[in-house]
């Protein structure tokens, strides 16, 4: 950025991060059963709109949060990496469920043992499947991260 004054950028970052953390736009990408819980979280009962995140974007170019909801197979891994690369900065990744975290119960030839092999992850979220509340908790954690670290560098 052109602004050199640390005081101004800090304050500006705070303001921008405040805006960003209440308007995450997740990418519509469900890989396995966890995606069902992700859908439930965005539906009326759990209501993701309270976090300003109800807009699931079908294009990675509009999104800034990537929820890896489900089992990542080796065949899918290059595709997920490509989607991640297509998202504009700033971007964050939530690994939802045991499968996305570590491969979960699928310790097999075809499953990537943790999505952090393929893309960097900000929030890990255990559970099989995690409840919609857990996804919202992860969301709060992500907001915490933005509050503490700002978002201009992300």
């Amino acid at each position: 950025m052109g602004v050199e004054n640390v005081f101004i950028t800090e304050k500006l970052d705070k303001l921008i991060s405040w805006g960003r953390r209440w308007s995450f736009w997740p990418l519509t990408c469900g890989l396995a059963c966890c995606a069902i819980e992700m859908m439930a979280a965005s539906a009326a009962r759990f209501d993701f709109a309270r976090f300003g995140s109800e807009v699931f974007r079908p294009s990675p170019r509009h999104a800034d949060v990537f929820i890896i909801a489900g089992t990542l197979t080796k065949k899918m891994a290059p595709v997920v990496r490509k989607l991640y690369d297509q998202m504009p900065h700033p971007k964050w990744v939530v690994a939802m469920g045991s499968c996305a975290e570590t491969g979960g119960v699928f310790d097999t030839y075809s499953v990537v043992q943790g999505v952090d092999i393929v893309i960097p992850v900000d929030v890990y979220m255990p559970g099989c499947a995690p409840t919609p509340e857990a996804l919202q908790y992860a969301w709060i954690k992500l907001q915490d991260k933005l509050r503490k670290e700002g978002s201009l560098k992300a």
Binding site: K74, A77, P78, R81, D85, G103, D107, T108, Y109, V112, Q113, G114, D116, I117, V118, I119
Partner: peptide, 29 residues
Amino acid sequence: YPLKGKEGDDEYLDTRLPEGQLKKPEHTR
């Protein structure tokens, strides 16, 4: 066929991901 994958399986990801992205030495446990 070994359930947890063969030796050469890791190459599949290695050749398809950008360099420097691999955190773990092996993709399979």
